[in-house]
């Protein structure tokens, strides 16, 4: 291309155009990535139906304690969960997470045939779900006395946790009420191990697709290691 005046003008014009449009493309990229993640959020945690209804209600912890009677046959008084890990600890969990999980089990999104009759509409009203969530959230976070892992894979578990889990579940496993990420500190090791397996293998119907993606490559040993580490986390 001969270096004449016309070409220089064309080149300058192109450069100018690129410089002008560059921020726009960045913005567009940014928007498209936001869209993807919010689409994931939408599919995972659409706020509608009973979940939305319960979230809008004012939960009453005193009423919640009474409504929790129907749950404590399995989850135990004080919602400590069971030593075997068959039933999770619920004490201290975020209100949003509790409402979401109960509503999802009721709607069948999270399949749990064993629990379903106990969360039946004749046992729990939507208000009772909000009340139970308020009651459980207010319960003290006592130390994880019977739910710890074997403690033999903590270093590996820590590496995985810091790399993959911390960003959502937080440094101490506190989760996020706003984003519906559960509190996992103090949770029973065996219960968590079962559930992360379900999540990885696509068996937990209401799992966050982002999390499925992250733990898809995990081996059983990886899951055990990271769960081992989590079971040692404590919130003071």
């Amino acid at each position: 291309m001969p270096l004449n005046r016309g070409n220089i003008v064309k080149w300058m014009f192109k450069t100018l155009l690129i410089l002008l449009l560059w921020p726009l493309t960045l913005l567009a990229q940014d928007q498209s990535s936001t869209n993807v993640s919010s689409a994931g959020q939408k599919g995972w945690n659409e706020l509608n139906g009973e979940k939305l209804e319960a979230l809008k209600l004012n939960g009453d912890a005193t009423r919640g304690e009474e409504s929790f009677q129907v749950c404590q046959g399995c989850h135990k008084r004080g919602a400590t969960g069971s030593a075997s890990g068959a039933y999770p600890r619920l004490a201290g969990q975020h209100v949003s997470v509790l409402i979401e999980q109960i509503a999802d089990i009721r709607s069948g999104k999270r399949k749990n045939d064993k629990m379903l009759p106990f969360a039946d509409e004749h046992e729990l009203t939507t208000q009772a779900i909000a009340d139970i969530a308020a009651y459980l959230h207010a319960l003290p976070l006592t130390p994880n006395v019977f739910g710890k892992g074997p403690g033999n894979a903590l270093a590996r578990g820590k590496t995985l946790y810091l790399r993959d889990c911390l960003i959502c579940h937080g440094e101490n496993g506190e989760g996020s009420a706003e984003k519906f990420y559960p509190l996992i500190a103090g949770q029973n090791y065996k219960y968590m191990l079962r559930e992360v397996g379900f999540i990885r293998d696509g068996k937990r119907g209401n799992a966050n697709p982002e999390m499925i993606k992250v733990i898809k490559p995990y081996s059983d040993a990886d899951l055990a290691a990271v769960t081992d580490y989590i079971s040692e986390l404590e919130i003071h």
């Binding site: 009677q69 129907v70 749950c71 404590q72 046959g73 399995c74 008084r77 069971s82 075997s84 068959a86 039933y87 064993k114 106990f118």
Partner: peptide
Amino acid sequence: ESRDIPACAGC
């Protein structure tokens, strides 16, 4: 727990 029988005492 092995058969998901809740404690009757719960209710």
